[in-house]
Simulated scan of single mutants.
Amino acid sequence: MDYKYKIEQLRRQDLLRTVRDRGCPAGRVINIDGRDLLNFSSNDYLGLASSPALIGAAKQALMDYGHGAGASRLLSGGTTVHALLEEKTAAFKGAEKAIMFNSGYAANTGAIPALTDDNSAIFSDALNHASIVDGCRLSAAKRYIYRHNDLDHLESLMKNSPCAHKLVITESVFSMDGDVADIYNLNLLCNKYNAALYIDDAHATGVIGQGRGALAHFNVTPNDNIIQMGTYSKALGSIGGFVAGSEAVIDYLFNTARSLIYSTALPAAAAAASLAAIEYVEAHSELPAELPAELPAELPAELPDLIVKLHKTIDNCRRMLRSKGFTVTLDNTPIIPIVFDSTAETLHISGRLLEMGVYAPAIRPPTVKQPRIRISISAFHEDEDIEHLVNALSEAIR
């Protein structure tokens, strides 16, 4: 295969990607190629990735357990910190049990094929993340794609499927559009057709439902037919993925999920950082106005209530964008897509933003069908950052 020719094809189609690595911690301002830029490209929604709480927890675990895990989880790669994180994750999600994966991608590509077989039917939202798509492709199940957030179309597919075992899969907050799936009515529909509901909560955990995710947001009680997948790597500021559900589901995944069985475990330091992040979000979901007195000592008291601040910043950004004539959805999530007609136009806008000190890369096919600037809001953004972003976007599209 002529890869040089294929690279040139990508270049001509404005689809060639290049990597730009930062020379600093994740945060509000990042340094790329020697320039300080306002960062609107991160999934670090609560700004915890560089927080002293997570760094301190990781340092202590590094001293206690070393760096590399040395083996897969089913051999000797796990530690008591891994087990504690899984217990905390299950409680955080209201589930009986949880299992940790090396990434959200590994969770979806491991769990989905493991939970289905050739007697199953998978019903997947048309805009689900690539990791879900790949997990479905690895499954032996019959696959159905329903129109995005179209529950009538989903029901028609479920009604006509002869398969006894049905699994509906959706993101809760969609990663490229920022809209929210109707989890309440999806759950009712799954109950009606005796189907399991698999929720990818990656962009909802730490953000909606007082940080606990989509089920809490919609006031849906977890049950044996609901499987919650999520990540520690976005709002929780760490690394790794998880699946939470009934004890039977999680025990089965420990025995069958290939991406878990055949991967070296994440270091204990990563698990410790994730644990510190959940403890922070748990503390703030109970008393969102101030830090509670019983907050663990390793979490610095000067940290603001990040969840509340995040949503105030989201509201401010969406309001200012609308005032400038941008079309913005009503969903109160940190993901705000500004869609353009062509890839060339999107690249031009992204380049103009870069000139004005704003880092917001173009999102292009095949990641999305319609190119866009995907604005990601974080709790670390200040009002003047949002104002600069909106003014820069207005200037860039003139």
Rank of each mutant, 00 (worst) to 15 (best):
L10S: 06
K142L: 02
E247N: 13
I307N: 13
G47D: 02
L287N: 15
L15P: 07
N108G: 03
L62T: 14
L151G: 14
Y45I: 07
S350H: 10
S131V: 03
T170Y: 05
A272P: 09
V207T: 13
P292E: 11
E345M: 09
T89G: 12
P334T: 10
P52G: 03
P25F: 01
R322P: 02
A289R: 15
I32W: 02
S259G: 10
H217C: 06
N108R: 08
P304C: 03
P366W: 01
Y262I: 04
Y280S: 05
E86W: 05
I145N: 11
A268V: 04
I30G: 10
D305V: 00
L354C: 12
A164H: 11
A83F: 09
T89N: 09
E294Q: 12
A71K: 07
S238C: 09
Q60E: 12
L85T: 03
G34W: 02
I261P: 07
N316G: 11
E96V: 06
D179I: 02
I169G: 01
V249Q: 07
L167Q: 03
I132P: 01
E345G: 04
T116C: 11
A111E: 02
A344H: 08
V173N: 14
T367A: 15
T327P: 00
A90M: 08
V29D: 06
F242T: 08
A49P: 00
S139I: 05
Q60Y: 01
M229H: 14
A204C: 11
A276S: 15
I132K: 11
F92I: 00
K192G: 05
I226L: 08
P296W: 06
G23T: 12
D200C: 14
A49W: 00
G23E: 11
G94P: 08
A270I: 07
E382C: 10
D177Y: 05
P371D: 04
A216M: 07
I7P: 03
E395H: 13
L84P: 01
I349V: 15
I122L: 15
I208H: 04
Y280Q: 06
T346R: 09
K309T: 13
S246N: 04
E384S: 15
I7W: 05
A271Q: 04
H388G: 04
S350F: 02
A107F: 00
L330K: 12
E286H: 10
D315A: 14
K369P: 03
H284N: 06
Q9N: 14
L115R: 06
